[in-house]
């Protein structure tokens, strides 16, 4: 099997790489680039721990090939913080203790930002429905939902 050349922008940095075609985005991020903030939970597209942003919407990095993303852009959890300041959604998760063990948190935050990008003032019901693709094995959903409500408000206010 031949390696293929790809050009992919991750967190505003362009990477020109030669990769094996079967390289999944999640493995590329974690193993090649050392961006381990994006987690591997189920590895079967159920849990959402591996969510990253593509065109401002969350997708699951365990279920897409890097080859499918040639000339495209991805944002990971590492790139949310700007000038040493947490992203409003990260801050909201901290304020509301929107995590227990923290394993699902990066995916939850990316998923939440994706929701707010589409709908900047979701109801509690809309937030819960949106989280269908994110699992928290600690079952800490109450505070996650609270966090997203606050994060949405802060994102609206900060434009």
């Amino acid at each position: 099997m031949h390696e293929i050349s790809i050009k992919i922008t991750i967190n505003e940095k362009i990477y020109d790489r030669s990769i094996l075609p079967n390289t999944l985005l999640i493995d590329f991020l974690r193993e090649e680039l050392g961006l381990t903030g994006t987690h591997v939970g189920c590895d079967t597209s159920q849990c959402g721990a591996c969510m990253v942003l593509h065109n401002n919407a969350a997708i699951k990095a365990c279920s897409i090939l890097v080859a499918q993303l040639n000339n495209q852009e991805i944002t990971t959890i590492e790139h949310l913080q700007k000038d040493d300041k947490l992203h409003p959604m990260q801050n909201a998760f901290r304020n509301n203790h929107g995590l227990q063990c923290g394993f699902c948190t990066p995916g939850m935050i990316m998923s939440a930002i994706s929701l707010i990008n589409e709908n900047n003032s979701p109801t509690e019901e809309e937030i819960r429905k949106h989280l269908e693709g994110n699992l928290c094995r600690c079952t800490g959903y109450q505070n996650i939902v609270k966090s997203i409500e606050e994060g949405a408000k802060d994102m609206r206010e900060k434009g």
Binding site: H54, A57, A58, K60, I64, S111, S114, H130, E132, N134
Partner: peptide, 8 residues
């Protein structure tokens, strides 16, 4: 599926 699956 879920929102991320629907995007793909």
């Amino acid at each position: 599926g879920d929102p991320a699956v629907r995007k793909m």
